[in-house]
């Protein structure tokens, strides 16, 4: 029972960052119909920016997280303007291939710049865990969960309460009508891709200090982000949050009680199960021809 409670806490912390990753990816797909293969690389980028700022430039830890997110936002905007804007009329598969090419460039540029050795990001948090009865958790992890929750809330407010958010949702539902109504779809796309990328970079900057920062850290995470959005339904925002937490819990409990070795496989097995039993998925969308 004690062990189960500990797994619940760990799963929640993990799920929070997964939700951040998933929501960025699903937003980009929902608005732009782009399957973003650079998402894992933006995660890595955020983590390395946090490392560079904190460990090399000795910038304040919290400020570094903000800056890393901003840099991720900027990189996302750049990718959209240079690569995706010219591809607006192209089919979904060609865009995917361009994004795979971009991911190759980003990952290897990172490897070239930072070297292959994993780095540790110093944090101002105490290394001693906080203890609540049978459960213990590092202050850093609680902070990560808090920031992830705040970012999700801010993002939701942005979408619901601001003009930009309304434009984004309108494009999400029907790009053509939105553009007829005066929404500048091009800029909505840039903003969307930048925000999605910023969320991925934020997730990297948050999780980097919890584990370690290495050039290939985004590989598995990028694939997991796909798993999350498939679970919740591509382009479904609340679905991504649910999918994120679902994956966090499945990994944590599966790893703890079934097999620690297969921990990373549970998410992918879950998808294949969902599709085998319920081919229309948890949330059916029009992409699913069957």
């Amino acid at each position: 029972m004690d062990q189960a409670l500990q797994h619940l806490v760990n799963g929640t912390v993990l799920g929070g960052t997964y939700a951040l990753l998933g929501i960025g990816l699903t937003l980009i797909f929902g608005v732009m119909r782009v399957v973003n293969f650079t998402h894992g690389e933006l995660y890595t980028f955020g983590a390395y920016m946090a490392y560079g700022l904190v460990a090399l430039l000795h910038v304040d830890f919290f400020l570094s997280l903000v800056l890393a997110t901003m840099l991720g936002l900027a990189l996302g905007a750049l990718i959209e303007l240079v690569l995706l804007r010219p591809m607006r009329k192209a089919d979904i598969d060609s865009v995917m291939l361009v994004m795979i090419g971009a991911a190759l460039v980003l990952q290897n540029a990172g490897l070239w710049a930072w070297g292959g050795v994993a780095k540790l990001v110093p944090t101002p948090f105490a290394g001693t865990p906080l203890v609540f009865g049978p459960v213990s958790v590092l202050p850093l992890r609680l902070f990560v969960l808090g920031v992830a929750a705040t970012l999700l809330l801010v993002f939701w407010l942005l979408l619901e309460r601001t003009r930009a958010g309304i434009a984004m949702r309108a494009t999400f539902q029907d790009a053509e009508t939105a553009s007829l109504m005066g929404v500048r779809v091009g800029w909505v796309h840039t903003a969307t891709f930048a925000i999605g990328s910023g969320l991925a970079a934020a997730a990297g900057a948050l999780l980097g200090p919890v584990f370690m920062v290495s050039p290939a850290m985004g590989d598995l995470v990028g694939l997991k982000a796909f798993a999350i959005v498939i679970l919740g339904g591509l382009g479904n925002l609340p679905g991504a949050v649910i999918g994120g937490f679902a994956l966090g819990y499945v990994e944590e409990f599966g790893g703890g009680f079934v097999s620690s070795e297969y921990r990373d496989a549970f998410g992918f097995l879950l998808i294949i199960l969902v599709l085998a039993i319920r081919p229309q998925g948890l949330v059916a969308l029009k992409e699913r021809v069957g």
Binding site: F29, R33, V35, I92, M96, L223, F226, A227, V229, I230, L234, S259, E261, Y262, D264, A265, F268, L269, I271, I272, L275, P279, G281, E287, R288, V289, G290
Partner: peptide, 24 residues
């Protein structure tokens, strides 16, 4: 059973699951 982005992601996950099995 599915097309487009879903199909792509499922094929990727398929290889990933096999890697996990081979690893463990």
């Amino acid at each position: 059973r599915v097309r487009g982005a879903y199909f792509v992601v499922i094929t990727i996950c398929f290889a990933q699951v096999l890697r996990m099995v081979a690893l463990n």
